[in-house]
Simulated scan of single mutants.
Amino acid sequence: MNDVTVTVSGNTGSTPVLHLNAAKNLEWTTFRVATSRRYMNENGDWTDGPTLWFTVKAWRAAAANVVESVHKGVPVVVTGRLDVDEWTGPDGQQRTGLVIHATAVGVDATRGKVGFTRVVHHDTVPDGAPVTRVGSGELAAARPGDADPFALDALASGSAGDVRGDEDDPGDDAGVGQRELVNA
């Protein structure tokens, strides 16, 4: 592949809106991001360079998460495939714009306090059991003893970091290995 992958840090210039193509059962969102390079001029003062504008497109579950998490004016970091959109403007002139097909969108924690909530998608099989996706995406019932998709067992045992029990009492292992949705 000869795709150009970029990472852009900037501010959102519009609030993302969720769109749905009902025929294809496909959700997507677009929003604008502005970024300006800062540089030191010949007098030694920091100066803003020209502003570059990008349209960001996100698809499927990422689109829904972006709509819930990002609003106009929020500092973001976006990574994705760079593309150019071409269209004819209302004045009949040919126009172009830079587009990032996002593979990752995050609120920039270096510029403010950020909260995180993991989204867990729960599918069901006919008998109502929780499921996991295997191979080509078919559903299979999750069984006790299946691999932990978030590696929480490894964290609780200390092999992927020392996360044990009550942080106020390192000898207290109560609750180690319990799973719950956590806001970080």
Rank of each mutant, 00 (worst) to 15 (best):
S36M: 09
S36C: 09
K72S: 07
N65F: 01
R60D: 11
E68M: 10
V67R: 00
V77I: 13
N41P: 11
K57W: 11
T47H: 10
Y39G: 10
F54H: 08
P75Y: 02
V67Q: 03
F31E: 00
V56E: 02
T35L: 01
G73F: 05
N65Q: 10
T79R: 04
V78A: 05
R60F: 08
E42H: 13
G92I: 01
D83S: 02
T51D: 08
K72V: 05
G44Y: 04
K72M: 04
A63W: 06
V74M: 10
V70I: 01
V56H: 03
E42P: 09
R81F: 02
A64R: 13
L82E: 05
S69T: 00
V78W: 00
V33L: 04
N65W: 03
D45H: 12
M40K: 15
P90L: 09
L52T: 15
M40W: 14
R38W: 14
W46F: 13
V77K: 02
D85K: 09
V33M: 01
T88F: 04
V84F: 05
D83P: 06
G89I: 01
H71S: 14
V56C: 06
H71Y: 11
T79N: 05
T47I: 11
A58F: 04
G49I: 04
T55R: 13
N43C: 14
D91T: 00
V70A: 03
D85Q: 09
N43P: 13
A61W: 12
